[in-house]
Write a protein that binds this DNA or RNA. Structure first.
Length: 308
DNA sequence: GCTATTTGACCTGT
DNA sequence: ACAGGTCAAATAGC
C-alpha cells in the first residue's frame, strides 16, 4: 500500500518535471519561432527563412503533442463533468461560463456568411449592451457525440460594413468532423476505422481543456499521422508538415489571393497590420492552421484576441 | 417523431 | 447590481 503510494507520488513528480521541461522547451521554440517570424516580416521575401520557420513550427507541434499526451493521462476530465453534470440543475451554467472566460480566444471577422468548416448549433442569443446587434452563441453540433467543447460567438460588426461578422472562437474541437462549406457534414476519415484518432483543434492553450480531452487530447492535427489521416478525405485538406507548410502570412495570402480578387481585399492583405496578425496566429501559444475551418473566400480580416 | 431554433430564466464573474 | 454566457422548455420545420 505504502509502496504503491510512494510509486505513484514518484510517477507524479516525474510527470510534473517532464511537463515543466516540455513547457520550457516549448516556450523556447515559440520564442525562436517569434524571432524568425519577425525576421521574415522584415525581410519581406519569405524564401530563405521559410524553412527554419516551418521547422520551428514542427518542433512546437511536437511539444504540443507531448504535453497533450502527458496531460491526457491525468484522471478526471472535463468531459466527465460535462457529460454527467450538465443535466444536474445545480451545475447549470457554471461550466460554460467559466470555460469561455478562461480560454483564449480567436477573433475573426468575416464577410456575409458565418460558414466555416464545422457544423455549429445555435444555443443562445443575447442583446449586448451598447451594441446595435445581438450576439449569437453557437457550439459544435458534435458536442454530445464527442464531447466537443468548441464554441463560437457571432456578432454583426457595428461600424462600417454591416455584412461583416465578428466571430470569436472558443474551446477545442474534439469531434474529428467537419462540415462542408455548403453545410453538409463530412466525417473525417469517413469509415470510422480511425475514429480513435480524433481530430482536435486547439484555439488556444487553455490547459484545462487540453488535459480535459483525456485520451483524445491531441492538439491540432498539424503533423504526423493526424494530418495525413484527417486531411486525405476532406474538402479542406490540412497542410501536411512534410510537404506544405502550415498557415503563415504568405500561405494565407495565397489562399486569400486565389479566392478573393477584390481590390479592396487585396489592399487589406498587403497591409502590414494584417500580415502581422496573420503571422501572430502562428506565433501565439498554440500553432494551428486556421485555414482548416475558415473559408477564406469570405474572410476579410482576422486577428487574435488573447485578452483573458 | 426527430432535430434545430427561439427565448426567458438562471448562473457566474466583475 | 449588472452584463454576459448557458441552459432547457417551448416551438417550428422537416
Amino acid at each position: 500500500m505504502v509502496r504503491t503510494t510512494a510509486l505513484a507520488a514518484t510517477a507524479g513528480e516525474y510527470s510534473n518535471a517532464a511537463s515543466q521541461l516540455l513547457t520550457k522547451g516549448r516556450k523556447s521554440a515559440a520564442r525562436l519561432h517569434d524571432l524568425l517570424g519577425q525576421q521574415l516580416l522584415a525581410a519581406g521575401s519569405p524564401s530563405t527563412l521559410h524553412g527554419p520557420l516551418v521547422l520551428t513550427e514542427q518542433i512546437l507541434c511536437c511539444f504540443d503533442r507531448a504535453l497533450a499526451a502527458l496531460h491526457g493521462g491525468a484522471a478526471g476530465t472535463e468531459d466527465d463533468a460535462a457529460g454527467s453534470g450538465r443535466k444536474c440543475k445545480p451545475e447549470r451554467g457554471s461550466a460554460g461560463a467559466r470555460a469561455s472566460a478562461s480560454s483564449k480566444r480567436i477573433r475573426v471577422e468575416k464577410k456575409s456568411t458565418m460558414h466555416d468548416n464545422f457544423l455549429w448549433r445555435k444555443y443562445g442569443q443575447k442583446e449586448i449592451k451598447n451594441s446595435k446587434y445581438p450576439r449569437f452563441y453557437y457550439r459544435c453540433s458534435y458536442r454530445d457525440d464527442h464531447g466537443c467543447t468548441a464554441t463560437k460567438q457571432v456578432q454583426q460588426s457595428e461600424d462600417d460594413d454591416p455584412s461583416l461578422h465578428v466571430v470569436t472562437y472558443f474551446g477545442e474541437h474534439f469531434c474529428g468532423r467537419v462540415a462542408d462549406v455548403d453545410g453538409g457534414p463530412v466525417v473525417a476519415g469517413d469509415d470510422g476505422e480511425e475514429s480513435e484518432e480524433l481530430m482536435v483543434i486547439s484555439f488556444g492553450s487553455s490547459v484545462g481543456a487540453a488535459a480535459a480531452g483525456g485520451a483524445s487530447a491531441y492538439p491540432w492535427p498539424c503533423c504526423g499521422e493526424d494530418a495525413k489521416n484527417s486531411g486525405a478525405s476532406q474538402p479542406w485538406s490540412l497542410p501536411d508538415w512534410e510537404e506544405v507548410p502550415p498557415l503563415t502570412a504568405s500561405v494565407a495570402e495565397e489562399l486569400i489571393e486565389e479566392s478573393t480578387p477584390e481590390p479592396e481585399l487585396m489592399g487589406l492583405i498587403s497591409s502590414p497590420d494584417l500580415e502581422y496578425s496573420l503571422l501572430d496566429l502562428e506565433l501565439g501559444e498554440s500553432s494551428f492552421g486556421i485555414d482548416g475551418f475558415i473559408s477564406f473566400d469570405e474572410l476579410s480580416v482576422y486577428s487574435i484576441d488573447n485578452a483573458r
